[in-house]
Amino acid sequence: MMSHLAYEASPVPAYRPTGSPVLSLEAVQKSFGSLRVLDGLTLAVYPGEVFGFLGRNGAGKSTAIRIIMGITRCDAGQIRVFGKSLSSDVTGIRQRIGYVAQEQNMYPWMTPKVLARFVSGFYPRWDEPRFQHLMADFDLPAKRRIGTFSGGMKAKLALTIALSTRPELLILDEPTAGMDPVARREFLDLVREQTMRDGATTFFSTHLIDEIEAVADRIGIVEAGRTIYDGELDPLRNSIGTWSIAMADYVPGSVPGEFARRRLRVLREGERQGRWVMCLQFSEDLLASHEIVLNEGWRHDVMSLEDVFIAVVANA
């Protein structure tokens, strides 16, 4: 039996980065004692793009962000932000970055108004009208103690503060952790809306695939401190597929279709629920054909982006 699998064309035109990178990491290494957290991390973020920084918990995302922020120093490698070496002017660079941390460690006794007054002392480009405007947009009470805020409100406040500094680069470190789905969606919409309005570059770290789908132009996948994918989302999604065959029909060593082994990479294979399952990543020229002729008994299984991510990460 022959079947045809046609890939759907992406609804948005393919994104192409332009200009010099706003942020670049080259072969960055960092160890804590004997534990190597970053092992040659390399990536680049270009002006105006939303870069999704994807990785499992413990993959090294937060360490990478702490290094980018100049809070932690790397052991080796190069980091350039706005074309400058991070070590040359960390304070000046931070003044151009808006940062929303994973945990909102804001002073609980402060009100947003007091916090804004405190933070404005550090940022020469602090935009008070914008702060007021965003506070109103996000429906945040200006005179209530932050300690009484919910997690979502705190994250919105952190984003408000970050955007009020008129950042050229917005770094978001898993900002939606602990938020309910509605709040998460609201937050992501706000990020997308605001960054599009400002044209600011956004570096969005998360382990949640749907967040990346919602906002990112390009992604970098980090695993065990290394970049295992750096590029657009659709080519990644299109390059990976899963096929299965009933165990009774499976001939060991067989493949789902008529293509040479050398043109694909087996990401994962094994028995699952009475079927032999193969997850394959294709090379670009095969992908370009948009058509795969399947051998008899094999069927194509639908894959979510999360499945793609798991397959890539597991194989790494």
Binding site: A101, N105, Y123
Partner: peptide
């Protein structure tokens, strides 16, 4: 203890 030092250390200020 409250972790607020992490908020300060991310601000543009010498360590």
């Amino acid at each position: 203890l409250s972790g607020t030092h992490q908020f300060v250390e991310a601000l543009p200020v010498g360590s």
